[in-house]
Design a protein around this nucleic acid. Sequence first.
DNA 1: ATACGGCAGATTGTCAACAATCGACTGATG
DNA 2: CATCAGTCGATTGTTGACAATCTGCCGTAT
Lengths: 235, 235
Amino acid sequence: MTKGRAGEAVLARVPKSTFRAHIADGLRAAILNGDIEPGAQLVETALAEQFGVSRGPLREAMRQLIDEGLLVAVPYTGTHVVGLSVDDVREIYSMRVTLEIFAFEQIWARREPAFRQGLVARHDALTACIDAEDDAASIVAELQLHGFVYEATGHKLLIRTWESIRGRLQLYWAAHHRAHGIRGPRRDGHDRYVAMALADDFDALKAEITDHMARGGQQTEAFLRNREAGAVQGP
Amino acid sequence: MTKGRAGEAVLARVPKSTFRAHIADGLRAAILNGDIEPGAQLVETALAEQFGVSRGPLREAMRQLIDEGLLVAVPYTGTHVVGLSVDDVREIYSMRVTLEIFAFEQIWARREPAFRQGLVARHDALTACIDAEDDAASIVAELQLHGFVYEATGHKLLIRTWESIRGRLQLYWAAHHRAHGIRGPRRDGHDRYVAMALADDFDALKAEITDHMARGGQQTEAFLRNREAGAVQGP
DNA sequence: ATACGGCAGATTGTCAACAATCGACTGATG
DNA sequence: CATCAGTCGATTGTTGACAATCTGCCGTAT
């Protein structure tokens, strides 16, 4: 099996499971879902007992989330879920404009049928979620739509950076959702976005991305400005 | 002290030291210095004994380097120092162009005297290292010169991405240095770079950055192409 | 009333032992 | 001779106990 004798089709590798990975996923989901509020303190002993594991694996999972920018830790003192500041949001959206245009530059010449199909499929999924008024699913679907562009480049560093952005955005949107109720992504904006991504006017797409992000950024900043300033700041 | 009573000047906070941080720094330095070859396996028990600590802190330090992209681990099997592939280098240099232009966009309007002084100081340091033909120091000095631009933006995510790039570049250059001997950064290129960063023609600077990176990328790719392909690939 | 010193609780950092898994080797077997 | 089950050494994953450090509180002295 290791030598791929059973034809060219590589069977999906069974993921080697470690507690660390599972805990990191579960903890990340809990934070992004809003089950754990921004600013809340995470105590290792309590969490370890909750997950039913020792502190060792849990510590490593928390380290991973710290590296992802979802938690912030002070030695011998405590670990907290980060909150997003206005400055954070501003830099995230300005970086999204730059990185997403960069991503399209990398793949512009080779938007093969596979890419077009993948983009359309994710757009359809997003549309379905929006029509169903499933806000939580819409958020995930929108991030998957944008993330598909980054993944299509194959640039590992870019993908990693996007994942970091994605986590922070999801953290904000979860809070936004809890505070304001239904306020998911709108579909007209993404209809234009996808149409332009598949057309051949690169300058128009650049402008659309810039506008797209400007709208999102303004909405985000407005929400954060109306919030109490007690959130723990990220690294 | 916590309330800042002693005037506005915030005294530099004494860094809280943990083994994890020291080990991560030491291990990173050893890898980037070339004391540990790319592709080499790192065994936890051996390293722990070498550092004089238990496996716990060492594991967390290694996790950190894995997140930084310097190591790659397979559960229950082993951890290795990554090698850079030609594709990795290509994407790193193309991202450097985009990110460094983005960084200058962010600070262009507010290149205060402090920024100019900082840039000149790092350029002087680099020049001194080059004149002294201290190759290892030149590499570090060059990365600090470029890194200063990213830090000046204050964008945490951007800085973090740069640190990841910096680590990979330093990893390559260390190997390059060992293989080819003296081949440090040249000073004329950086003279132009700094001069343009302080002047007011942004388009000219963009072109200079593009050329700068193109030269570096070609040199890097040429070296990697002449190498055996047995290096462990990064994540 | 305020500043200082020390105590106590809570939390994280560290350690050494144990368990699970992997990769290679060996030897039997068709 | 190829193939496969079993075993063994090596390496990482996991655990529970112990130590170091921080924060808040209380009492005391000025």
